[in-house]
């Protein structure tokens, strides 16, 4: 039994999220998951982008890095390549992950680094006061779509599966205990794990509220879904509106993670090697200087 507790992850910085923000539930679930797994604060790295939820590393006693908008997956991949022992998590919003960071999202999914990616999906750019995001439903009126969103919304779990992701799940910030279980499974999974989280924004999304989700979500594990069945996972991924599935949608065991396949790291992660093992620094300097 680990002696790591949730309180070990408490920071002296108090969250500045709006009262009732879905980020609080995600935050509680994440801390609970790390404590349950016995991951100490110095053994974990939380990388975020820009947005309300991306302020999370400030509020947590853990290695943390807030990157530029849309780039946390790239930075997290680099960290994992350098130190395989780190439990690397990315926490960002739907705008950061699926919009500005959309390119990194699809390529990280197919690359399969051992990273757990928690996306706070509130279907809006909230920090900048309510612009529509890639997951805002078509037709929704927002501050930047006064006549309704024209584009179709991104279905992130379907995209991740199409790109070859080996673990795809969806949680709900209003049920943090269930979400914590998903995050634990994602961390245990030795590859890229997407956990798309239905996150009510109490200010700029007055449609998809706690109550709205509460009436619609159902748990896949209670419905007998087999996450190893890719065809069934595709069907589940397409469900929305009246019934919204939460739980592990797809998983594939045995696929090697990216960092285990990089030839330059055959001798071990960079953090365990001396600079002279990695390269002849003198030769490099002579070549480029």
């Amino acid at each position: 039994m680990s002696d790591i507790t949730v309180k070990d992850f408490d920071s002296w910085v108090k969250p500045s999220w709006c009262p009732g923000c879905g980020d609080y539930g995600i935050f509680a679930a994440l801390k609970h998951s790390l404590a349950e797994l016995g991951v100490a604060p110095h053994e974990a790295l939380v990388v975020s982008g820009i947005g309300c939820g991306s302020k999370l590393p400030d509020y947590m006693h853990v290695n943390g890095l807030m990157t530029i908008h849309g780039r946390p997956l790239a930075v997290a991949t680099g960290a994992k390549l350098a130190n395989h022992a780190l439990t690397v998590l990315v926490v960002d919003g739907d705008g950061d992950a699926y919009g500005i960071g959309g390119n990194h999202f699809i390529h990280t999914a197919r690359r399969n680094p051992d990273i757990t990616h928690i996306v706070e999906n509130n279907q809006i750019y909230a920090l900048t006061k309510g612009q529509y995001s890639p997951t805002t439903p078509q037709g929704r009126v927002t501050t930047t779509s006064p006549e309704g969103v024209i584009e179709r919304a991104v279905n992130p779990v379907a995209v991740a599966m199409a790109m070859g992701a080996t673990f795809v799940a969806r949680g709900f910030a209003g049920e943090p205990k269930h979400l914590a279980g998903l995050i634990e499974e994602g961390i245990r999974h030795p590859g890229y794990a997407l956990i798309d989280v239905l996150q009510p924004c109490v200010v700029f999304n007055r449609v998809n509220t706690y109550a709205w989700y509460g009436e619609r979500v159902y748990k896949l594990e209670e419905a007998g879904h087999d996450p190893y069945d890719r065809a069934a996972a595709q069907r589940v991924a397409a469900e929305w509106d009246d019934r919204i599935p939460i739980g592990v949608i797809l998983r594939e065991d045995g696929a090697p993670s990216y960092e285990r396949q990089v030839p330059a790291l055959n001798a071990g992660p960079l953090v365990e090697r001396s600079l002279t093992d990695v390269a002849d620094i003198g030769a490099l300097l002579r070549r480029f200087m």
Partner: peptide
């Protein structure tokens, strides 16, 4: 009951349909 629902998440459920 969900034991991880703290006062902040509780407020979210409570205020779901009321402007602040």
């Amino acid at each position: 009951p969900d034991p991880l629902i703290d006062s902040d998440v509780f407020v979210g459920w409570a205020m779901a349909s009321v402007d602040a």
